[in-house]
Design a protein around this nucleic acid. Structure first.
Length: 671
DNA sequence: GCAAGGTC
């Protein structure tokens, strides 16, 4: 057999091999993170690859030959990566002091973009490798931030070589065929997306620094507890605080209202059947008494409808970051931050896929069966996985979100429990059970509805019998409650109810926010990204704007919750009502409550600037819309920066004028 | 001492 390509064993051999391709293109490929560089290098090289260490311990350079097709043809390739952003935006040294110049000067101070201190080695590796290359191919994630990181890579590479031809690969997962296809269909970087991110970076810097200094220095003069506080403002941390404060006041200002209802019970075949009132409840006691007495006078109830029909409980959607964090805070005794740390550790050990994703649909081309197969060796869920392999496998449901950068979170290889710490074990187990649930069948049952007329009032009973648990067997976090079997009823029959009661209750306030609620609100309002939401929540605790306290039960209140939704709450995607923190068996639900300080800051801004209060989430949403407009070519970076800086400068000036209002509120809520 | 966004 003649081997056309083989790994050179000696340096001299390597040099001879190289000289044969003296006229070939040399292409430098750069990914956003080491794992992508490794995966892409492996696919493109077919395994014939030399691996070199770099001064940065996380980054390796992979050298191999590859044919990109037209126009580059066969190339010598070096594939490497960065570690996220390389550069950072900062103010010149003369703006470092807090006393002078005044904070509002930060709205028009120069902003320098420099290589971040901890990214020097990363940038140098790119620059050095670029010197030997004819072309640069960007392999960063295909999202907005990825586009900007791609631009940063270009700038670093140009320092080493001004004449590079620059291209970008467009890919949304790291399956071999998809990556090969991307390599043969290179496109250009999109300057619009780069500009959108550049605007975000500059505005967050200016606004964050200006208002942080404004708050800290001005309230310090109140003395007392404000003396040594750092009062930060950020476009994400403040709206997050705003949600907590808003819910706090909804709970505090809640006025309970009494209501009355009628409940009908009937015992048959040893089963107590509870018929609910079609009117649910009324807030008029006299009216309910009249209706109730008519029921009693009628003595007998008549069955008007009996319906049995097949029903399903749907298996969950493929796992996103937001959903992972919500589930971890509800079922795994973890904070969002802890969940992310464990998930990142699992990812870095190669056990699960990339944990920061908005995507809740698997690419149809992915070989999910092979991933299920890897779980058959588990003592806990191996049998379930084996059943899927043996024919039970079903393609997962497709959600509506696709970030075009990462697949849903899923297990990559089997991890024995002994190699994981406690937190990692819990997250790994959850990721696997969720994945197996996605690959199995919906739970199936039969639903029975019985309607009756009693007096002139309608009542109904609903029952479900679970026939096939299917995914519920492995996905222990879901329960199909209300699975009570109803006894036999026949349309037209009459019976005398065992019991008919008039009940009394009062509406209860909504609960304080749990971390899962808070994450859902941030998600729905576009506050932060999947990678940063947990950080913002941690930040407002560090700053002592909010605290968590164990939920105290409220046994005296009725079972009927009124409201329960915060400002701007439209329910996060994938969120389900009726599965809240309050109802699970975990024991200690933690509520988020603002401190006096947190309340004072939000109240202060609300009273100073009522048309554009910084505590409201819509300013962040506005920034999101403006970024989108830049991406779609409807506006430009320059216009957005100009408009936004003017707008925030106005809020700043107004805050300065009404400083006495802020201070008064500060004293009112003296921490 | 300050932001939010990547990633390790």
């Amino acid at each position: 057999m003649i081997r056309l390509f083989h790994r050179p064993r000696h340096a001299s051999e390597a040099r001879r091999a190289l000289s044969r391709f003296a006229s070939t293109m040399r292409v430098l490929c750069v990914a956003e993170k080491p794992s992508i560089a490794k995966a892409v290098a492996s696919h493109l090289s077919g395994g014939e690859v030399q691996t070199h260490n770099t001064p940065e311990k996380y980054i390796k350079n992979y050298v191999f030959d590859y044919d990109f097709g037209r126009p580059w043809g066969k190339c010598q390739v070096t594939m490497t990566s960065v570690l996220g952003h390389i550069t950072s935006a900062e103010f010149p040294p003369e703006y470092k002091k807090w006393e002078y110049p005044p904070p509002d000067r930060l709205f028009d101070a120069p902003v320098n973009v420099v290589v971040a201190a901890d990214k020097k080695k990363v940038a140098e590796n790119i620059e050095k490798q670029a010197r030997h290359a004819n072309a640069l191919c960007i392999w960063t994630d295909c999202d907005r931030e990825g586009e900007h990181i791609g631009y940063e890579i270009c700038e670093a590479a140009k320092k080493g070589n001004r004449t590079l031809e620059i291209k970008r690969a467009k890919f949304s997962n790291i399956e071999r065929a998809h990556i090969i296809n991307a390599s043969k269909n290179l496109i250009n970087l999109d300057p619009k997306q780069v500009n959108a991110v550049a605007s975000r970076i500059e505005l967050d810097l200016r606004i964050g620094y200006a208002f942080t200094r404004f708050l800290t220095t001005n309230l310090r003069s109140l003395g007392g507890p404000f003396q040594n506080l750092l009062l930060s403002y950020g476009s994400c941390q403040f709206p997050t605080l705003g949600f907590v404060v808003d819910r706090y006041f909804r709970v505090r200002n809640f006025k309970p209202e009494p209501f009355w209802a009628i409940k009908v019970m009937h015992k048959r075949e040893g089963i107590d059947v509870h018929f609910s009132w079609a009117r649910h409840r009324l807030f008029d006691r006299a009216a309910v008494i009249v209706l109730y007495e008519r029921c009693l006078a009628a003595k007998k109830a008549k069955v008007t409808k009996v319906q049995e029909k097949p029903t399903k409980k749907w298996k969950p959607l493929p796992l996103t970051t937001v959903e992972l964090q919500k589930m971890a805070t509800i079922f795994l005794h973890m904070t969002g931050q802890q969940a992310m740390e464990a998930a990142e550790a699992l990812y870095n050990k190669g056990f699960i896929s990339y944990p920061r994703t908005e995507t809740d649909r698997f690419d149809p081309g992915m070989n999910l069966r092979a991933l299920v197969q890897k779980q058959t060796q588990s003592h806990a869920w191996g049998t379930f996985a084996q059943n899927l392999v043996d024919g039970g496998f079903q393609q997962p449901r497709q959600g509506r979100n696709d970030d075009k950068a990462h697949p849903p979170i899923h297990p990559v290889t089997f991890a024995a429990p002994s190699v994981l710490n406690e937190q990692e074990k819990k997250i790994y187990e959850f990721v696997v059970r969720r994945f197996l649930a996605c690959c199995s069948e919906d739970a199936k049952g039969v639903a029975t509805d019985v309607d009756i007329i009693y007096g002139e009032e309608s009542f109904y009973a609903h029952g479900v019998v679970v026939l096939e648990r299917n995914y519920l067997e492995v996905y222990v976090y879901d329960k199909w409650t209300g699975s009570v079997q109803l006894p036999k009823f026949t349309v037209g029959e009459t019976f005398e109810p065992t019991e008919a009661l008039m009940t009394e209750g009062k509406t209860a306030p909504p609960n304080y926010l749990t971390e899962a609620d808070l994450i859902a609100l941030m998600d729905a309002n576009g506050i932060g990204t999947d990678a940063t939401m947990a950080e913002h929540i941690q930040k407002i605790q560090e700053r002592d704007y909010v605290r968590t306290v164990p939920r105290t039960s409220r046994p005296d209140e009725a079972d009927d919750v009124e409201g329960g939704r915060g400002r701007g709450d439209r329910g996060g995607r994938g969120g389900r009502r009726g599965r809240g923190a309050a109802t699970n068996a975990r024991g200690g639900v933690m509520d988020f409550i603002p401190t006096q300080l947190g309340v004072a800051l939000i109240e202060g801004f609300d009273r100073m600037n009522f048309e554009t209060s910084l505590g409201k989430p819509f300013l962040r949403k506005e920034m999101e819309l403006k970024m989108k407009a830049i991406c779609e070519g409807r506006t430009t970076k320059e216009v957005v920066l100009d408009e936004s800086i003017q707008q925030y400068r106005h809020v700043y000036m107004q805050s300065q004028q009404k400083l006495s209002v802020l201070k008064a509120v500060g004293v009112l809520f003296w921490p």
